[in-house]
Structure formats: structure tokens, C-alpha cells
Design a protein around this nucleic acid. Structure first.
Lengths: 365, 365
DNA sequence: CATTGATATGAATCCTACG
DNA sequence: ACGTAGGATTCATATCAAT
């Protein structure tokens, strides 16, 4: 990030994203969010049953003559995205049935590894006026790592917390962008035909980036990605061809007040200090021969000099021993065992790791 | 259908579906439902958090060496499906993120026209045990016409009725197949690793077929498609490689009792008789100079000899005239205008079409 | 019999740091 | 690169046993 921070960070650049990305250094961004043209093959005008015109996607940037041209365009911008992505960066791409199968196929062929396809289910989608099909009430997001073996960021606990304590699913129920959030021009018309809801981008960013990360959006539009990046303490880089969109995006992002709190700072993702049993023995937090207990004190084991524990029959790691006592194949011994606290009752074994870290300032990953 | 009825209808054939389909005549089926191998690229064992093993898809029929081999297989079976489809037939294909982008891309290239991509959202999907991604809680169905201009079947009103009076969406909430519905072998183990829920197939069939239609399922498995086809008064043709699956499917389908009622017979889809204004004039159900009224009688028009109506300023069709009176661009005049009923008050203009049909036995499409 | 609680299981691309 | 050990991680529902 340091290489590009002064030149690129938190700015919107006017121009074709393929040309603009070519000027960027390789492996420089942490995440990409891309909302490319959808290739809607609507010829003529779509009208509601009362005859009023439905103002859908008919802008000139959404016209492609055939699949070959669209595939070529897709391959070009995705190749540049792939190049500027750090090796552990991930990429989100949003589309609808008209284009998402082109995107997914091409991305798989390029070596991107699909982590999830996420369904944005819209409770207030535009109805099917003709009664000719099912109401198209969703869009699809592809979330991919750069390669199969990459160590992408995923803030599992934060997502779980934001989903009322249950792990987040691949189907997200979020309303389309309307009301105050929808940008309108001086005539009251919508500025952009496909402005995405902020809730969607908030979830995308909070699930797959860390504070300070750089997020690239090659089809910036009116800047929902930039707005949410700023709001959550992340950085953005935007490319956009239309001057009009850039102006609205800049004004919009300026007005954003970041909310930097424990959630956006990923405090929920913090893991226990990595302090081993042998280290606790070495520095006198435990001693060989000392006993560890189950919480109700119904079971006890003896610590050995090597940092394992013995139940009188076997000498095992605290994890294997707790699993054995619970009849499981795996268990976390740090959470199972308790230790005598100077005659004041039992304290969790795991608390010794926090004590060690606090007193010696080591052990945090 | 007549060509193949005696040989193929309501039977399961053992063998590779590509070879078997090649023996079939062209343009002979009304709908295809295909649940091909997903090419899940998994290795090793996946354990639940309690250490027990998760038994997913480990079948040999899901093994492919790479995308190229999978794409070739996909192209071959889809080509044969396309050939045996009648020109107004439609095709459903189900998959997950591992394969659906291969399927969609290839189908679009072959000329299939995507009508909807339907999301099967599973409230009781397998969780993500490792906390590494979003829980994969959906699968995707592609519903396509053979060509862009084909006149496919879609039972809009039936779907709306089954969805509590609201138009059906592209996101369906249906539980995975468990409990009594899940076929078990003599040892209590699931017969097929990916048996689909009957509710899903019911909805697929009821939305896109007519009574008596022939449905082809090239990956028949344990026959959910056949069971629901029989249950709704449709016919099936199945191909399946595994003898074991065929035996369970045959037994299962035998036990099905068809429920042939107004819903399965699509009585909700019946349209008003196609009888024109000029025909009503010709046979004396209306006469030139007679008046038509709005329901509250606040407006009136006069019928002309040509079957149009005049408001004293313009002579227009009943549809254009009703639209004009309502300030709309389009409206259905048959539902807007009322006609004097021999001094007994007003009756709907449209009711004359039913009267004509009843008395003369014409007009039904 | 009704209710409660324990157990089983389903199309899954399911870890990571260290030596 | 590869093996090994440490240690982090699950939701809805059906079935069946226990009260």
C-alpha cells in the first residue's frame, strides 16, 4: 500500500478503468469490488401495465453487440484487477442473469477461486409487469480469492455478531436503494440507474477487509463503495468514465462521517494470546506435578514436565486429553481445564495466557 | 409426443444419458429438468465441530479431471437435450457455484435464452463448520427457452395463486430433502447423496408445463422428477446409469397417487373467449348505435358499425377509448365498459363474449 | 400421551503456523 | 515444499429416548 498511498488513495480517476489500471503497480490493493455493465438485452421500451415507461438500464455504457465483445471486455478488466490485487486479496463482482454466467466462467478460467456466490435477495424488487416470468428479485455476487491456496480475509465473528449470533448465509435480504439514500439530480431524476444500497457494500467491506485496507472499484459510479469504505475506516480507489457520476460521488463521500468503533476495528476477531503450555511452565505460571481440573472438579489431571497432562493412564496434550474426557475427537483444552488459584477457587487455564501476555507483553500474534 | 409415446413415455432407461438421448427423435419433449454432477472439488474429510465425519458427495459420478473435461461433458449432454426439445419447450438446470457458471455460459453460447435464474434458498442448509466462509445456503436453477423468440409455457396465474396471490419471485424458500421423503436403504443410509425435495420439482413442473406434457430428466437419480410428473398428470422420460437408483425410483413412482385437480389442470390459466367486437355485432349481440357505459355510468360511448366506439370526438377501439378515459396509454376495454341489459341494469361487456361462446360454441383458443 | 432433551445429519470447493 | 502439532469451529430439523 505504501507505494501507491500518496498517488491513488481515496481518489476518483476519470477514464476507462482498463487503461487506468494499467498505470497502477502490481499487487497493490487488498480488495476489489466491481459492478460492471450488465449487458441487458432490452430492445425497445419496457412499459408498465398502466403504460408508463419503466426507466431501466438503457444508458449507452450498457450496450454490447454480442457475447464475444462482452467476454473480451470482461477478460480485459478482470485481468487488470487480478494483476493489481495483492496475493491474498479477494474480489467481489456483482451481476444479474444476463452477465453473471459470463463473469463466473471467465473468472474460474483465469484462476480465481470462488469462495461463495452470494445472493442479494431484494424484498422490494421491480415486479414483472407482463406476467411472463418469475419476478427477478435478486442479483448475484461472486466472492473469489486470487488463487485456490490464498489466505483471504474473512471476518467470521463480526459477520456472526451482525447476524444475531448465527453464522451469515450466502443469501442476503437487503432492500434496493430508494428514499434519501438514492441520489437525485436537480430535476429529481435518479443520477445513476443502478445505484447499490449502502447496506450491501457495508456487508461486503466488513466481511472481507481489515481497517486501513485499500479497496479498488473499477466501475465507481456514484461511489457507494467509496462512501462505505470511508465510513468504515478503509481506503478506496475509484475509476469512472462519466464526469457527472464523479461529481456526485465526490460530494457524497465528502459528507460521510466515519464510524470507527469496535465493529469496524474488528475487535471481535481478536484471538487468545498464542502462549504454549511449555512457555507457561518455563516462566513459572505453572509447575510440573500441578493439577488441572474440569470445571466441576469431577476430573483431574497432572501436568508433566513437557507441558502435556496425564490422567494416570496416558500422557496427552491438553487438547487431546479434554477431547478424551468429553468423548470427542477434538476439543480445546484451554477452555476445558481450570487451575487452582492460591486457595481462592478455580480460574480458567486460558486466563493464565492473558496474564502472561499482560505481564510479559508477548504472545499476541 | 405421439411418435415416442409407446416407446419412451413414463419409463426409466439405464445408461449414459448422452448415448441414450441420441436414439431419441428430435423435437419430442416439452420440458427438460437436469440435475447434472456438480463437480465438487473436495478432498480429504470434513468433520463437524464435534469431530464426527460429514458425509457429502463422494460418488464416482462426480469426478472430473478439470474444467475442460467437465465443459466437454456439459456441452455434449446439453446438445442432445436441445435437439430433443420441441421448439417451444423449456429447460431447467440446477447447480451450485462449483458448476453453475460453466452451465450458464455454455447454455448461452448454445443459443438457450435465460428466462430466469431461480435461487433455491435452503433454510436448513449444511452449516460452514470451520467458520471460513459464508454458509452456502442456496443452489441455482437456470430456466431457459430453446431460443429467444420461443413461446414457452409459463403458468403465471397458477404460480401467483400458489404464492398467496402475489406474483412468484426468483428466490424460492424450500427446505432440503429430509425425513420420510428421503429414501433410505435397508441399512438406514441415504440412497442418493443429492436427492431433491419434491416441493422444488412440484414448483418447477407446475410453473412451466401443461397437463400431459412430456418431461425429460437425463440424470434421473431416485426419480423426484418422475414422481412429481406422475403426481401432477404429466409424463416423464428418465435416464440413469446406476441400477440401484433405478430400482428405488421405480418403486417410489409406483406408489404415487396422482392428484388431478383444477390446479394441476391449470384451470386458473383459462383466458376469456377470443370473440371480437365485430363478431358480436355480426351475430346480433350488439348493434351499431348502442351505448356502452363506464361502470358508474358517468361516461358513455356509441358503438360504430365497424366495432369501434365514439365519444363524439374520436372513433377508437374499446381499448384505446377506455385508456383515453382513464388517462392511461393502455387499458383493457372489455373490463372497462358495461352494457344495458334489457332494462335490468348494466352487465359487463366482457360477459357477452362468454354468452357468445356458450351459445355458439366458438371463441375458445 | 405430552413435553423435553439428546442425538443424528444434510451437494462442502471448511486451518495455520512452525520447523 | 511438506509434514506435524496446535487449536478453532455448527444450523435446522427429524428421530428417539427419557420424564
Amino acid at each position: 500500500m505504501k507505494d501507491i498511498v500518496n498517488i491513488y488513495i481515496d481518489r476518483i480517476f476519470k477514464g476507462n478503468c482498463i487503461d487506468e489500471m494499467k498505470k497502477m503497480p502490481s499487487e497493490s490493493v487488498d480488495m476489489v469490488f466491481a459492478d460492471p455493465p450488465y449487458f441487458m438485452q432490452t430492445d425497445g421500451v419496457l412499459r408498465r401495465t398502466d403504460g408508463t415507461k419503466f426507466s431501466g438500464v438503457e444508458d449507452r455504457w450498457d450496450k454490447f453487440s454480442d457475447f464475444a465483445e462482452y467476454d473480451k471486455f470482461t477478460t480485459e478488466w478482470l485481468s487488470e484487477c487480478r494483476r493489481v490485487m495483492k496475493k491474498d486479496a479477494s474480489i467481489w463482482v456483482i451481476g444479474s442473469f444476463q452477465n453473471i454466467y459470463r463473469l463466473g466462467y471467465i473468472m474460474q478460467n483465469m484462476g480465481f477461486w470462488i469462495l461463495n456466490d452470494v445472493i442479494w435477495s431484494k424484498p422490494n424488487a421491480v415486479p414483472n409487469f407482463g406476467g411472463t416470468r418469475f419476478q427477478n428479485s435478486h442479483e448475484t455476487l461472486l466472492w473469489c480469492a486470487k488463487t485456490k491456496d490464498a489466505k483471504y480475509s474473512f471476518n467470521y465473528k463480526t459477520m456472526k455478531y451482525l447476524n444475531n449470533g448465527k453464522q451469515e448465509k450466502s443469501v442476503w435480504n437487503i432492500g434496493i436503494c430508494i428514499g434519501h439514500e438514492r441520489l437525485k439530480d436537480e430535476n429529481g431524476n435518479k443520477v445513476h440507474s443502478t445505484q447499490k444500497p449502502e447496506k450491501l457494500l457495508y456487508k461486503v467491506i466488513m466481511s472481507s477487509t481489515k481497517p486501513g485496507d485499500v479497496i479498488l472499484d473499477p466501475f465507481f459510479g456514484t461511489g457507494t463503495t467509496g462512501a462505505m469504505a470511508k465510513a468504515t475506516g478503509r481506503h478506496f480507489i475509484g475509476f469512472e468514465m462519466e464526469e457527472k457520476y464523479i461529481k456526485y460521488a465526490q460530494k457524497r463521500i465528502e459528507s460521510i462521517n466515519p464510524v470507527i468503533d469496535d465493529i469496524t476495528n474488528l475487535k471481535l476477531e481478536v484471538k487468545p494470546p498464542k502462549v504454549s503450555m511449555s512457555r507457561l511452565l518455563e516462566f513459572g505460571y505453572l509447575r510440573p506435578g500441578q493439577k488441572l481440573y474440569s470445571k466441576d472438579k469431577s476430573k483431574e489431571v497432572v501436568i508433566t514436565a513437557s507441558g502435556h497432562v496425564s490422567d494416570g493412564k496416558e500422557e496427552l496434550s491438553i487438547h487431546k486429553m479434554s477431547a478424551k474426557m468429553l468423548g470427542l475427537m477434538n476439543h480445546n483444552g484451554w477452555d476445558y481445564f481450570w487451575v487452582e488459584n492460591k486457595g481462592e477457587g478455580l480460574m480458567p487455564l486460558n486466563s493464565l495466557r492473558y496474564k502472561y501476555q499482560k505481564e510479559r507483553g508477548e504472545g499476541q500474534e
